[in-house]
Design a protein around this nucleic acid. Structure first.
Length: 357
DNA sequence: TATCCACCGGAATTTATGGAAG
DNA sequence: CTTCCATAAATTCCGGTGGATA
């Protein structure tokens, strides 16, 4: 049923970008000075996960490159340091520059200033934490270089950046797609990626509605629906295949999220999983963690961490949609989002400690 | 109602880690 | 091998919040 799996990948770039005309226009206006050899305006692109911020920026850059002499770079900045970002920009900008990975930041700045001789636009993707670092200041200091920052929360981002910068930014926010818009997008993917006529427009609308306009989830659900139909040896996608596709799509995302996390997160997830199902009071979780202590890490080189650190890990787990936090302060409870996502780690049995307070 | 206590999460500070230079 | 450095991670500190208790 699937003839071209590539169109369902997260990084697939469709030929035409549908229903983002206004946003493309805004970015193009910001880039306009670059086509006259001048520095483009800096821009900020915000919106929820999976609504096409990255796709939009790539599209706008490609258009610009076709029409003007400019350089571009696209950097994923999540969890990167100033040095990491600068190195990546240099790598993409000038293939000739050879980098070791440990140069001092000041050297990188010098190199970059010399290398940039015509307008250069740098997309800083997943830049939510970026205002905490000084990458922005450094990059703005390079003549002819401008940035497009991509983040989730506009207000929070702007609050952490200095006022002058905030004032001159071109800000474009993206919203979730409407059902008919996302259905159009899914239709285009289906046309290329699936055999003709295996899904109906109505089914695409049902998917678009279920995922509330989040393109990434919609596309993954479409793929999952086709896979499920194949497994059940249906000739076309059935309603039941669609109905079962969402959970598979979301579960896949969660599974890979959990697998990507380090040991402390795994331990906390496993512990919460075992204390569940359902809500677990924060105190219960912390007490059990303290009671089990080193036994939680049997055989592993890591050791238990204090409460404050645990809270950071729990926050990360929540960001990844693996657990949910309920209630405030004293009333805080945690709970695993999806009991089908099994922990990767075994927690020693609770016998013996069960009756301790 | 006033006080206490446990928890939350921002910010500052300290410690651990890994690679480069001497 | 030791020293130095930068970065990431862990810890310390703390103001804020809300349920429990007297």
């Amino acid at each position: 049923m699937i003839v071209d799996p590539g169109v369902f990948n997260d990084d697939h770039q469709p030929r035409r970008l549908q229903h983002r005309e206004a946003a493309v226009e805004t970015l193009s206006r910001a880039f306009e000075p670059a086509s006259r050899g001048r520095r483009a305006e800096d821009a900020l692109l915000t919106g929820p996960s999976g609504v096409g911020k990255t796709a939009l920026s790539r599209h706008a850059l490609r258009r610009l490159e076709a029409a003007a002499d400019v350089d571009t770079a696209h950097v994923r900045t999540l969890g990167s340091t100033t040095g990491d970002v600068l190195r990546e920009v240099l790598r993409q900008h000038s293939a000739s520059v050879h980098l070791l990975g440990t140069e001092p930041v000041s050297d990188l700045v010098t190199t970059l200033k010399h290398a940039v001789s015509r307008p250069c636009i740098v997309v800083l993707d997943e830049a939510d934490d970026l205002p905490e670092t000084d990458v922005l200041d450094v990059l703005r200091d390079v003549p002819l270089l401008s940035v497009v920052a991509i983040a989730h929360d506009a207000e929070e981002w702007l609050a952490h950046v200095d006022e002058d910068f905030a004032r001159v930014l071109t800000h474009q926010s993206l919203d979730r797609y409407r059902v008919d818009e996302l259905a159009d997008i899914l239709e285009a993917r289906a046309q290329v990626g699936l055999r003709d006529g295996v899904v109906t427009r109505r089914q695409l609308e049902v998917i678009a509605d279920e995922v509330a306009g989040v393109a990434r989830e919609g596309i993954q659900s479409l793929r999952a629906a086709a896979e499920i139909a194949d497994e059940r040896e249906h000739h076309t996608v059935q309603e039941t295949d669609v109905a079962d596709s969402y959970e598979r799509a979301r579960r896949e995302i969660r599974r890979s999220n959990l697998a990507s996390l380090p040991v402390h997160h795994q331990v906390l997830y496993a512990l919460l999983y075992q204390l569940g199902p359902g809500e677990v009071a924060a105190g219960t979780l912390h007490n059990r963690y303290d009671a089990l202590g080193d036994r939680l890490y049997g055989g592993l080189p890591q050791h238990p961490v204090i409460k404050r650190t645990r809270r950071n890990k729990l926050m990360k787990l929540a960001e990844y949609d693996l657990i949910e936090t309920l209630g405030e302060s004293k009333n805080r409870r945690y709970q695993v989002t999806d009991a089908a996502i099994e922990p990767a780690l075994d927690i020693p049995g609770l016998e013996g400690s069960l009756f301790r307070k």
